[in-house]
């Protein structure tokens, strides 16, 4: 598993110091389309920052986040071994890249110093029929994580019923409350389903999708476009300075729900939507 460990360290390096091309292109487009002023000037600094981070292999943001792994594991591989390899790679990446140490013990308030701790990093496994191991890594900072919201519909304060209009109202509400606190333009993940743990997992997982990838369901693809347009009409703008690009993309997915339940969860990524994939074997 030593070679896999090297691969995961390199995945950490790539994800922390560079952005996926679809995200960078979307930020470039925002820069082109925002009118002159502080918003546009700040976006030019954002783009310059991406260039510096990549060319000097410095983390894009000092908050290298809670490392979150989505692992598709072939049946012949051991979850325990892959987990242990990820943990060792995390310690090495923290030292070698470096990453900011973010794992704080809630009882002692001590920072472990190496980004490992109880259930830290977060690792989700899913068995696959494929022969190859696929590891997706998301590095998401605390600022955008803190803005996530869960709703239970119907909700009278938003006049939100159990339908697509109700879902849209939830997302508008979450973005309005977020304002510029979590480094917009945001990528927004939304999920609808039967239980709050499931929708929270699913909404965050949407942030792994490419920004230009629409949902295969035409209805959800339309909802994604509709919500994006609504959210951007709020005018909060890049960094919260006012402008047209409050979000770069909205990604929606749903699970079947219980007749009595209708949970809607909203997850935010900051503009530095850091994700990457390692395919091994």
């Amino acid at each position: 598993m030593l070679k896999l460990q090297d691969g995961i360290v390199e995945l950490y390096r790539k994800v922390s110091t560079s952005l996926p091309n679809d995200v960078e292109e979307a930020l470039q487009r925002a820069y082109q389309e925002e009118p002159p002023g502080v918003t546009r000037e700040s976006l030019s600094a954002v783009i310059e920052n991406i260039r510096i981070a990549r060319s000097e292999a410095r983390p894009i943001c000092q908050d290298t986040g809670v490392p979150t792994f989505y692992v598709q594991i072939p049946r012949q591989l051991s979850q325990i071994e892959v987990r242990e390899t990820i943990i060792e790679a995390t310690k090495r990446a923290t030292r070698e890249i470096p990453l900011r140490a973010n794992a704080v013990d809630c009882i002692t308030e001590r920072n472990s110093g190496d980004n490992t701790g109880k259930l830290f990093p977060i690792i989700y496994f899913e068995e696959t029929r494929e022969d190859r191991l696929i590891i997706d890594l998301m590095l998401k900072g605390g600022g955008s994580e803190n803005l996530g919201q869960t709703y239970k519909l119907p909700l009278s304060e938003l006049k939100a019923q159990r339908d697509f209009e109700g879902i849209k109202r939830c997302v508008i509400d979450a973005v309005f409350k977020a304002q510029g606190k979590g480094c917009p333009p945001y990528t927004i993940g939304v999920a609808i389903g039967a239980s709050k743990d499931q929708v929270t997992y699913l909404s965050k997982k949407q942030l792994l999708r490419r920004l230009d990838e629409e949902h295969p369901s035409a209805e959800l693809a339309r909802l994604e476009r509709d919500i994006l347009e609504a959210v951007n009409s709020l005018g909060i703008g890049p960094l919260g300075f006012g402008g047209r690009f409050t979000a770069l993309s909205v990604k929606v997915d749903c699970a079947s729900r219980h007749p009595a339940s209708y949970f809607v969860d909203v997850s935010f990524s900051c503009w530095a939507n850091r994700r990457g994939r390692l395919v091994w074997g």
Binding site: S42, A45, V46, E48, N49, I52, A53, E56, R58, P59, I60, C61, Q62, D63, G141, G143, G180, C183, L239, C270, W271, A272
Partner: peptide, 8 residues
């Protein structure tokens, strides 16, 4: 500039 940590 939020997130422009390498530049800053």
């Amino acid at each position: 500039v939020s997130g422009a940590a390498a530049l800053l």
